[in-house]
Amino acid sequence: MTATDYRTRADRARRAIADQTSGPGYFDLFWTGVAGFFTLLALIPLVLVLAYVVFRGFSRLNWAAFTQLPPPPLAPDQGGFANALIGTLIMVGIGALVSVPFGVLAAVYLSEFSQGQVPRWIRFATNVLSGVPSILMGVFIYGLFVITTGTYSAVAGGFALGVLMLPIIVRTTDESLQIVPKQVRWAAIGMGASKFQTVLRVVLPAALPAIATGLTLAVARAAGETAPLLFTALFSQYWLDSLLQPTASLSVLVYNFARVPYEGQQRLAWAAALILVGIVMLTSILSRWATRKQIY
């Protein structure tokens, strides 16, 4: 290669760089526009749902809504969904109590201790479980629990939600644990820590923010579920005074009151729907906040 060759190439390159005639990339611009447009289309349902729920539900939110029992059919703008709110919180709580220890421990086993083909099959089973329609979970707990105890109950509803949360918790915890770099595990093992100490003192603390994110997402998912509760907790017009009796929940209240011809109950259903959306959004924001503290 001679110096002249190099000059020629350099000149050509400089001219190409300076060349403005090819325009500012219309092709790129076009496809960016198309992708942006469809993104907006995809967001429309979310915005419309939120806006409409706020529009219909907000005006009905008053002190009574949070403190009183559901109104009788012909009592416009009286009563509230206090028992349903409490029911939802209790059942999600029971669900978490059941599923979090099992789910987290299963994920620890899966990610840290299992060998060979075992983890593959467990992960596959978990995926299948998370794909099972939630109404089937309800029927399953109905057969297992409601029939044997002879009553619809908060405990049955909580278990149904727990079964629903389990695969989500296993999967997100499993993923959070696997993100922790293997060098950090080596460091602990290399320090003379046993496998168990390594997991308990290094891997789990490092993964904790990510695990918390997964747990909050599972809770948000469970709080909005209706189908599994229809078969297990049913509904109640009254205050909850035992965990072994039919229990109201926000989602079932929306389902019931949205279908009746009485305007008072319909308006309460809208308000309950707004609170339900609020709970789900709040937990999602909480999980975002936990993610912010993520280490890896």
């Binding site: 950090v184 290399g190 003379g192 046993s194 290094v202």
Partner: peptide, 20 residues
């Protein structure tokens, strides 16, 4: 092996402090 690793320390290629 755990006893061996307590007597024989190791420093790795990538600095790998614990997230603590």
């Amino acid at each position: 092996a755990v006893q061996v690793r307590r007597r024989i320390g190791m420093v790795f290629q990538q600095p790998n402090p614990f997230p603590k």
